[in-house]
Design a protein around this nucleic acid. Structure first.
Lengths: 238, 238
DNA sequence: CGTTCAATTGAATAATCTCAATAGCCGTGG
DNA sequence: CCACGGCTATTGAGATTATTCAATTGAACG
């Protein structure tokens, strides 16, 4: 990738100054590999936020029955635990789905940058509002039947991955299991399989070897009632 | 009520100075009544946020089939459209469920206060993170069976209403229709009725004449797996 | 080759939806 | 006072959707 997915994502909130870009890049020098299926937060390391530089991860909660519900995907360039410190959402965890490369950032350091750089402050605010908008869209999505719900999530992944240069015109790599998708949809592993097959049979998607192909992107978006407005890719608007 | 639900809610984020309290109270002098089942946003009135001072409202989106999905309730003291300006969530509306009393606030005026008063700025940030935390909990809730899901929402309403002095030890007024609840749960009107009856039959709740009574609050919370941590009522934590 | 995990299939059960239809309440207009 | 319409709650029945349990298949790995 020609540059940080991190910077690339932040620029959606508006242009950053050269100072700000440099300050952000200085944060990302030391990276830590995290294997698949692990929690990103290390124990006993104090109050930190985590920046995912590569790989797929997710925010999730575990229900009392042992079920996992994924509430959002974490893609390269996403900050984690930024909104969940202290009293907020003690039970919300961030776990990897594939191997990831992660930057550990002391929260105080990030807050310092926020205080110093208006562009960074604005970007953090934008990221937060975007997460809120995204979460609400997921709630709405949960009222759709499972096939449209899956289609919607695939559209979201497609658009988000395109935004960071990780998808081409017709598809993207999706190195996660059907079970992971099931947990993101809130349905069972058996059912997601049947839903995937239904979308395949009708030619809406193909998915093999960790590669999702969407022959007719507009068609899938229409099927899913997907409107990318909630992803706020136009920044704060006019 | 002995004071604004607005101020009362803001104080959860931390204490406000006397100046800040006064500034906020000055915002709420002129109120506008909104009948039930109307959208709160007026047309053509410029960029505003809306503060609900009394009544029940909701944030919702409408699906292409005409279904409404409520993504959160709006209770007295809640700000609306604060996070949804411009490019964000064009399709997210705020509508009243009962008659409401609403304060129209020019967005610029609120932003001015945010710039001037650190306590207000912190409160706005807290409200935002709380909405995010709440939305994610609703996603998780959508994976529960309908009876537990309803129980969870009732617990949330109970705790939130208690926080603003609108619930007593064992229940609260809930002047909304079963259909409204159904739209908040993402289930049909027929099904919510059966779920309500199931909870009634098992003695978990009683609900008549717009009044919900919970004989065993702890029991209902356990049934719903309800943990109030996500509501961040302890402010920003230690 | 055995192990393991992901994907797949079948079959029975449970949850939820849709389509009707009925009953109760409340306010309006006569 | 009473009939009417409109909205909410309720009930029944059949069709769909999704779940669970169990078993099978396939690919990857050592």
């Amino acid at each position: 990738m020609f540059e940080d997915p991190f910077l690339r994502k932040f620029e959606f909130a508006g242009n950053l100054s050269e100072d700000e870009r440099t300050a952000l890049q200085l944060l990302t020098l030391t990276r830590r590999p995290v294997p698949a299926r692990r929690d990103i937060a290390e124990s006993e390391t104090g109050d930190r936020v985590y920046l995912v530089m590569s790989g797929f991860a997710c925010r999730y909660k575990t229900l009392s029955g042992g079920n996992r519900r994924i509430v959002s995907f974490v893609l390269p360039g996403d900050l984690c635990y930024m909104h969940d410190s202290g009293a907020f959402a003690r039970d919300l965890r961030v776990g990897t789905l594939t191997q990831c490369s992660v930057v550990d950032i002391p929260r105080a350091r990030l807050e310092e940058l926020i205080g110093l750089h208006p562009g960074i402050s604005r970007a953090i605010w934008w990221v937060t509002l975007r997460e809120l908008s995204r979460a609400r869209e997921w709630i709405v999505n949960d009222t759709r039947p499972a096939d449209r719900r899956l289609a919607h999530i695939l559209c979201e992944l497609f658009v988000c991955l395109r935004g960071i240069g990780m998808a081409d015109e017709h598809g993207f790599d999706l190195p996660v299991s059907q079970t992971d998708l099931a947990d993101a949809l809130g349905i069972s592993a058996v059912h997601i399989n049947r839903v995937v097959q239904a979308l395949r049979t009708r030619g809406r998607i193909s998915w093999s070897n960790d590669r999702v192909t969407i022959p007719d992107v507009q068609g899938l978006k229409a099927f899913a009632e997907f409107d990318p407005a909630y992803l706020c890719l136009d920044g704060f608007g006019p």
